[in-house]
Amino acid sequence: MTERTLTVEEFNQLLQQWSGETIKITKQELEDEDSIIMQLNDISYETDTRRLDEYEPMHALHLNGTGTTQTNEQELQPLPSSMYEIPLEDSTQYQFEGDRFSLVTERGSYTIERVR
């Protein structure tokens, strides 16, 4: 299957279909990589026009559910919150290939994939 670029609306429509699924989220930012396994219960978005600085995102994708994160010692720990936030920018690139989404921002890249 070939990777295709999505609009934010297409991304949202496809991702909403994954509610109730188990997903893996991988974040690569600078030299840091985190992986999370989550039972996805709900998907929401937030817009914050009153940001205090540029590090706070104007838009954010909230993946809500329960899950675990893998530590540097390869141990699984419960998520500290039932919500995982992905900062979104106007320039975010959304891509989809089969059972995997890729989001590329100025800060880093995120992969969201189904766990079978």
Rank of each mutant, 00 (worst) to 15 (best):
Q70A: 06
F101G: 01
E46Y: 04
K24N: 10
R116C: 07
R4G: 00
T71P: 11
T7W: 08
V104D: 07
E97I: 04
D48E: 10
N64W: 00
E75A: 12
Q13R: 10
E33C: 09
E46F: 03
L103P: 02
T111P: 00
D99W: 01
T111H: 04
K27Q: 15
M1F: 09
Q16N: 09
E21F: 05
R116P: 14
Q74H: 12
D42P: 01
D99H: 06
T2W: 05
Q77D: 09
S102N: 08
D42Y: 14
V8M: 05
N41S: 13
Q13F: 05
M83Q: 14
E21T: 06
I112V: 08
E106T: 14
T68L: 07
M38E: 03
L30F: 12
L88P: 01
S102Q: 13
L6P: 02
Q93A: 11
L103D: 03
L6D: 08
L30I: 07
I37T: 14
Q13W: 00
E97M: 08
R100F: 00
T5L: 09
E54Q: 10
I25L: 15
I86N: 02
L52D: 13
I25K: 02
D90Y: 07
T92P: 08
L76E: 15
E46V: 08
I25P: 01
E46Q: 11
D99S: 10
L88S: 02
P80V: 03
F101P: 01
L61R: 02
R50V: 00
L88M: 09
I86R: 03
T69S: 15
L6Y: 07
V8Y: 02
Y84P: 01
E54C: 00
N72W: 09
F101A: 02
L88D: 04
E21Y: 06
I36D: 06
Y55L: 15
